Computed example of a mutant assay.
Amino acid sequence: MRLAPDLPAERLDRSGYELVVDEHFAGPTLDTARWLPHYLPQWSTPDRSAARYALGPEGLTLRIDHDQPAWSPEYDGELRVSNLQTGGRSGPVGSGSGQHPFREALVVRTAQPERRLWLPHHGLIEVRLRASPHPRALTALWLIGFEHEPEQSGELCLVEIFGRDIHPDGSARVGLGIHPFGDPALRDDFVQVPLAGDALDWHTYSVEWMPGSARFFIDDVLVAEADQSPAYPLQLMLNLYELPDGRPRDPAEYPLEAGVQWVRESRLR
């Protein structure tokens, strides 16, 4: 990954792109033709994988409440998550076939029909969000392969911000890059870059995803570029995690919240 100090000072140029999806979460209800409001539901049960969220004038608020159950205690301990994803599939209950098998010996607990709701394939992907400052929070937008073929499993991450990495003055570091998972054509290439400004304000995170490369921008400023990229359609994973740290969960600290004003996809004209 080449980082900003070694890159030319460059701003994102959208003039060659045509906007094809402009999701502002403006309706009274979530657009379920585009979003599945569950997190990797094949490895859990509907009551545990369901997202908690609200729609309002500023867009989407992802929320984790004190009474929210761990999403998959069988496989992932006390992790809690509110997630919207744009695709899903699995094999039958009892099989090991499902998206994003994040550890060995996973077994499908709730079978998922094949749903290809919004799967970009190259182009410009962007999100405007405000991260949660809670020290156990992780706010992220990442894209993963639909995994109809198991090796089509790479990840392209626009943004991940850990609440524990947000300092009292608002400065923070932003994770971005590529994880191969089961894709032999990719290598792990993931970095953290400094965020200019207050992480608790709204910021725009963008990736120009091209065949064989990817360029990452924060607030329209080029911060990193990679010489590889997934070569197949990817689904979006937009989420707020609560990462367990062994401390009691104090009801006074909830809800944890992260805001998303919009998510966009543009394609080259």
Score class of each variant (00 low, 15 high):
Ala111Val: 01
Ser153Ile: 09
Leu141Trp: 04
Arg130Tyr: 13
Ser97Asn: 10
Pro135Glu: 13
Pro113Gln: 03
Trp142Lys: 01
Ser132Cys: 15
His148Thr: 11
Val159Met: 13
His121Ser: 08
Gly96Glu: 05
Val93Asp: 11
Phe146Tyr: 09
Arg103Asp: 05
Arg128His: 11
Ala111Cys: 00
Glu147Gln: 15
Gly96Ser: 10
Leu141Glu: 06
Leu117Cys: 03
Leu129Phe: 07
Leu141Asn: 05
Val108Ala: 06
Gln112Leu: 14
His121Ile: 04
Leu156Ile: 06
Thr110Arg: 10
Glu147Asp: 01
Pro92Ile: 08
Val108Gln: 02
Leu119Met: 15
Ala140Ile: 06
Leu158Cys: 06
Gly145Phe: 06
Thr139Ala: 08
Phe146Val: 05
Leu117His: 02
Pro113Thr: 03
Leu138Glu: 10
Ala137Ser: 12
Glu151Met: 11
Gln99Tyr: 04
Leu158Arg: 03
Thr139Glu: 13
Gly94Asn: 09
Thr139Asp: 14
Thr110Ser: 12
His121Cys: 11
Glu114Gly: 11
Arg128Trp: 08
Pro92Gly: 06
Ser153Thr: 07
Val159Gln: 03
Ser97His: 14
Pro150Gly: 00
Gln99Gly: 15
Leu138Gly: 02
Pro135Cys: 07
Arg128Asn: 03
Arg103Ser: 14
Glu114Gln: 14
Ala105Trp: 12
Phe102Met: 14
Arg136Ala: 08
His122Gly: 06
Pro101Ala: 08
Leu138Ile: 15
Thr110Phe: 07
His134Tyr: 00
Trp142His: 12
Thr139Val: 01
Arg103His: 10
Pro113His: 07
Ala140Asp: 08
His100Lys: 05
Phe146Cys: 04
Phe162Pro: 04
Leu158Asp: 05
Leu141Arg: 02
Leu156Gln: 08
Gln152Cys: 10
Ser97Trp: 15
Ile144Pro: 02
Glu160Met: 02
Ala105Gln: 09
Thr139Arg: 04
Arg136Asp: 02
Glu155Arg: 07
Trp142Pro: 00
Val93Gln: 11
Phe102Val: 13
Leu117Glu: 06
Leu141Phe: 07
Gln112Asn: 10
Cys157Asp: 15
Ala105Cys: 02
Ser153Gly: 13
Ser153Gln: 11
Arg130Leu: 11
Thr139Ser: 13
Glu114Phe: 15
Glu147Ser: 05
Pro101Asn: 08
Glu114Asn: 12
Ile125Met: 14
Val159Ser: 02
Ala131Met: 01
Pro113Ala: 00
Gly94Pro: 12
Pro113Tyr: 04
Trp118Phe: 14
Trp118Gly: 06
Arg128Lys: 15
Ile144Met: 15
Gly98Glu: 09
Ser97Cys: 03
Gly123His: 13
His121Thr: 10
Pro120Val: 05
Arg128Val: 12
Leu124Asn: 11
Leu119Thr: 11
Pro92Leu: 03
Val159Asn: 00
Glu147Leu: 06
Ile161His: 02
Ser95Cys: 03
Leu156Phe: 07
Ala105Tyr: 11
Leu138Ala: 11
Gly145Met: 00
Leu106Trp: 05
His122Tyr: 15
His122Asn: 14
Arg164Pro: 00
Leu117Phe: 06
Thr110Ala: 06
